[in-house]
């Protein structure tokens, strides 16, 4: 007997739960020939607000885990992705913009990048922090702290590698993230949510929304609880983002949308540094 096909309802991943948009809205995902694939949740500013709230609650616990433990958890995310790498590759190729073999290469590079940042969790402090030279009987230390909740707009191309390259350095140091997936192909990000759910990463540390940048830019840049933004936007939107972010003095990094995520320079210690605060402390010697 022929089976009735079981299709999946793609959902956003917020606070460790899979949710629809509070608005109930969706937009169709189509392939290169214009054929319908599935409906994607079109998240709103209220969804963003809710995600920021849970990110704020989850962040403190994530940041207080030992650096070593954060590394273990991120490495496990790599393990989860490796086990489902073919599924991820197919989700990248689903719109027909890249071939399956190109998609497989993107997945492999994404997993390697997760492992790269998993390795940095207990090392970046030793490189970026410092014992500063002073002329007196004091120590002077500079140590780092995560900034808090960070908002991210992904680039539209490289829907998995781009997201990983932007988000991983941010959560490595104990920040939490609200990310808007690629608008042209959010499907790999939605699949990634399912892997996050089984990766030991506490719910709420990484929240994945889908929707449109034009609609969400205002909230992603202006929300005062968000302490940093890493946004792939260009032109007028980029300017608008910087103006809005300035109001609450956020750290903002605006990137052109056509970043080449495959380059070696797309992963670095400095990507971690972008969303750190430095705290410098004097301490008397011997006390």
């Amino acid at each position: 007997m022929p089976r009735i096909s079981i299709t999946k309802t793609p959902k956003a991943y917020v606070g460790g739960k899979f949710i629809r948009s509070e608005s109930g809205r969706v937009f169709p995902l189509t392939n290169a020939n214009g054929e319908f694939i599935c409906n994607i949740p079109q998240c709103t500013r209220k969804d963003t607000r809710n995600a920021v709230e849970v990110a704020g609650k989850a962040g403190a616990g994530w940041a207080s885990k030992t650096a070593y433990n954060r590394g273990q958890i991120l490495y496990r995310l790599g393990e989860m992705m490796e086990a489902r790498s073919e599924e991820l590759a197919q989700s990248i190729a689903i719109t027909g913009e890249v071939s399956l073999s190109q998609a497989r290469a993107e997945v492999a590079l994404s997993i390697d990048r997760v492992v790269y940042y998993a390795g940095w969790t207990d090392k970046y402090e030793q490189v970026l922090g410092n014992t500063n030279p002073v002329a007196g009987p004091f120590f002077n230390f500079s140590v780092t702290e995560p900034v808090g909740v960070v908002s991210v707009f992904c680039s539209d191309h490289a829907p998995l590698l781009g997201l990983i390259s932007q988000v991983l350095p941010i959560i490595t140091s104990g920040n939490s993230v609200v990310v808007l997936a690629s608008s042209t192909n959010p499907y790999p990000a939605i699949l990634l949510g399912e892997m996050l759910a089984t990766s030991d990463l506490p719910g709420g540390v990484l929240n994945i929304l889908s929707g449109y940048k034009e609609e969400l830019l205002d909230t992603f840049a202006s929300h005062e609880h968000i302490r940093g933004s890493d946004l792939c936007v260009s032109g007028d939107l980029a300017k608008q983002a910087e103006v809005l972010a300035a109001e609450s003095v956020k750290r903002i990094h605006v990137r052109e949308s056509d970043v080449d995520w495959t380059k070696d320079t797309a992963q670095s210690l400095y990507a971690i540094r972008n969303f750190l605060e430095f705290k410098t402390t004097w301490h008397p010697i011997g006390a």
């Binding site: 920021v52 704020g56 808090g148 005062e224 609880h225």
Partner: peptide, 17 residues
């Protein structure tokens, strides 16, 4: 003010995160 607010502006006992 038209923008979403941060909890630490309201004498909330949040950890500043």
């Amino acid at each position: 003010e038209g923008v979403y607010q941060a909890p630490w502006k309201f004498s909330d006992a949040s950890s500043g995160y």
